[in-house]
Structure formats: C-alpha cells, structure tokens
C-alpha cells in the first residue's frame, strides 16, 4: 500500500460514520441517557463499557432506532448517520435498520432453517433477483460469519438446532446478509463459552475491514482485545471516550479508573 492510499484510508477512518450530539433518552420519567456526544468511526470497532444499568445498551439501541418499539421511550438530540439525521420524520426505521444491523445478547435465530434465517433479510429487502443470487448472498454471509464450513451440508436444518456459539454466528451472518454499513452488537458473547467467544472476537476483527462495529460488553478484557475505541458509560453519562489503549492504560477520569481497576461496577 503506498503512502497516498494509506493516507486516504486514514482519512476515511477518521471521518465519523455516526455522530451523536446531545442525546438524551427518557424511559417515562427515568432519564436513562444524559447529553451524550460521541463520534463513531468507520471501519473501527468501538466498545461501550460500563456497569449494569449505565445506559450503554440503551444508547446502542438508539443507533438503529430499536427503542422505537418501546412506547415509553423518548429520545432527544441528534444522531447523524453519514450526516443524515436518523430521527428525521422522513426516515423510515425499516430502511435505517437495513443499513445499521444488530446482533443481540442472546442468540435469537428464527425457528426456521439456516438458509431461511440468513436469506430472510435479503429477501424482504429485494436484494436478490433469483434463487441463485440469493444462495450466493447466503453463502458469502455464512462465510463472513465463519460458519459456512460447519453448516454447508445442512442448510435446511433448523437454525435453532445449532450450538450456542454457532447460533450467534448465524445471527451475525443474518445481520451481515443485508449488507449493512454499521453492525451493532449488544453483549454478543455473554451467553457463550470461552471458545465460542474467541471465535466471535476473531470474527469481529475480520468484519472491521468492511464495517463500522459497535459492541457493548461487560468484559473489559474483551473490550481491550477487540476494540480500537472505547466509550465508558456511567449512570447515563458518557464519562470518557478515546483510544482503547489510552482508556485502559491512562484513563483521565477517576470513575473510569475506578471501574477498570474493579473498584466500582
């Protein structure tokens, strides 16, 4: 790679993919997120860490408007995806969620076949003109999720019959199949054993080549292993946001330091 290309890549990486400004979230009267400003970069893994109930999952769910499904949730402020306000009344959350995919804490494959699980997104978004194209999309999504070799002979078997780690990779494949630009992961490894966790983390690192990833995690080691940027949330505030190495070795805020050294949380 020559210097020019490298410079262009750095330039692209520095441009914020998602930029949140003054975001407040309320659940009825509960002020869950307080005035959060954050810029999430493209082709970067951003980790959200913090103690339980600090609002990191809530904030993550704001990024693809999953909070819309909760009647009592109310969001103020501005979240821009590539400079467009995703809470603009003209935005259809369905289109947004095709661009901003999500993987959940508990593996939640549809009770259908592996093929149907992965092909569902492309099918409803009309991404394939025929069956051959659809099969191609499914294969490439499963390959990206490092699941293809394990399931290629039983694509018609139910997705719920896979092991926990395989199910979670199936969910990642399902999210990847709709060709999103951002992938949100809400504690994707909390229900998995260390081996499956290692596979998913490896996968996250590979996916970073093409996507902007945001991962919520309770494991600080995981955050340190997979992310380049880390945001520390505490009681609904974004306390500190910066380079992962910097946050873990040289935190600026005393609360961050207390959390990563295990004194609070």
């Amino acid at each position: 790679m020559n210097d020019l290309a490298l410079a262009a890549k750095t330039e692209a990486a520095l441009k914020p993919k998602i930029s949140a400004k003054g975001v407040d979230v309320y659940y009825a009267d509960n002020h869950a997120i307080k005035n959060v400003d954050v810029n999430i970069l493209d082709k970067t893994v951003t980790a959200f860490i913090g103690p339980s109930g600090c609002g990191k999952s809530t904030f993550l769910r704001c990024l693809n408007r999953m909070n819309d499904t909760i009647d009592i949730a109310r969001i103020e402020g501005e979240i821009l995806l590539d400079g467009e306000d995703i809470y603009d009344p003209k935005v259809d959350p369905v289109q947004l969620r095709a661009k901003v995919g999500m993987v959940f804490q508990k593996p939640n494959p549809f009770p259908k076949s592996i093929f149907d699980n992965v092909s569902y997104g492309p099918r409803i978004h009309g991404m394939a003109r025929n069956k051959a194209e659809l099969e191609e999309i499914v294969e490439s999504a499963l390959r990206r999720a490092a699941l293809w070799d394990e399931v290629k002979d039983r694509l018609l078997a139910p997705g719920t019959g896979l092991s926990g780690g395989q199910q979670q990779r199936l969910c990642i494949a399902r999210a990847v199949a709709t060709a999103p630009e951002v992938l949100l992961m809400d504690e994707p490894c909390s229900a998995l054993d260390p081996i499956a966790t290692a596979q998913i983390e490896e996968l996250i690192d590979e996916l970073r080549q093409n996507y902007s990833l945001v991962i919520v995690t309770h494991s600080m080691q995981q955050a340190a292993r997979v992310s380049q940027k880390t945001a520390f949330f505490h009681l609904g505030n974004l306390v500190e946001y910066g380079e992962t190495g910097h946050i873990f070795t040289n935190p600026e805020d005393s609360r961050t330091e207390a959390y990563i050294t295990g004194r609070i949380g």
Binding site: N64, M66, T69, V94, Q95, L96, R97, A98, G101, M102, V103, F104, K106, N108, P109, F110, P111, Y120, G121, I124, H125, C171, R174, A175, A177, T178
Partner: peptide, 23 residues
C-alpha cells in the same frame, strides 16, 4: 411468542407487519 424473535426480525429491517406475519 418471545420478544427476541420480534427483535431479530426488526433488527434485520423487517417492517412491523412483516415481523408479525412472517415470524
């Protein structure tokens, strides 16, 4: 029906009606 199924469908960009009728 577990809410995780609804979330999964909404998460891949299904509309409310697709979520209900497909899943």
């Amino acid at each position: 029906v577990p809410p995780s199924i609804r979330e999964a469908a909404l998460g891949v960009g299904a509309s409310k009606m697709q979520t209900v009728f497909h899943h």
